Amino acid sequence: MTSSTARNDYARDRAAIEDTVAAFVLALDARDIKRAVGCLAERVTWNYESVTGRPATVLGPEELEARWNATIVHTDASQHFLSLPHISTEGDHATCIVHARVEMRLANPGGSPYTATNGTYTFGLVRAGSGWLLDSVTMGLLWTDGNPRIMELAAEKGQQR
């Protein structure tokens, strides 16, 4: 393989990896849970320990779909801001690390309608045909602002329906 071919392959992979990550968070923010699930591998290591204190767990797309249908769809709005992707590939596996700010809104009688989580996301990806699927998501928390109960309140709202 020539160095030009290797650069072209990396550029194609990088673009596809960035597209997968963007499609995933844009789908969550649009409440298109089926589309978000379509970005996932058969098993996903889900690690929000730095945010929730709960250890990482391996979940299937159906389990994540149920989680999001019980929480994020019951918020008023969310927006994932991601920037400065650092991407590395090794064969059929890739890592994409980004700065992240995730904002959630939910009108509630118990406090601020806003929360923001600031840190880094590390997305692990596996090659799937000509594209990539997420097989791990890790949030590395730096700090939070606002009401830390927003997702808990969203889940309560979902249970009331």
Rank of each mutant, 00 (worst) to 15 (best):
S3Y: 00
S4L: 10
D9N: 13
D9P: 15
Y10T: 04
R14N: 11
I17N: 06
D29T: 13
R31I: 00
R31Y: 06
R31Q: 10
D32Q: 05
R35E: 08
A36Q: 07
V37E: 14
G38E: 02
G38D: 05
E42A: 13
Y48M: 08
E49H: 13
V51W: 08
T57A: 15
L59Y: 00
G60T: 15
E62A: 15
E63V: 00
N69V: 08
A70C: 03
I72M: 07
T75F: 01
T75D: 01
D76I: 09
A77K: 12
L82V: 15
L82A: 14
S83D: 13
L84P: 03
P85N: 07
I87K: 08
S88V: 14
E90W: 02
A94W: 05
T95R: 15
C96T: 12
I97Y: 01
A100G: 11
R105K: 13
L106H: 08
A107Y: 01
A107V: 09
P109A: 06
P109E: 02
G110Y: 05
P113R: 14
Y114R: 13
T115P: 00
A116F: 01
T117M: 08
T117P: 00
N118G: 03
G119V: 09
T120C: 04
Y121G: 07
Y121L: 01
Y121P: 05
T122C: 02
F123A: 07
G124N: 12
V126N: 03
R127N: 09
G129C: 10
G129D: 05
G131A: 11
G131V: 07
W132G: 08
W132C: 10
T144E: 12
T144F: 03
D145G: 06
G146S: 12
G146E: 02
N147M: 06
L153N: 04
K157H: 13
K157M: 03
R161E: 14
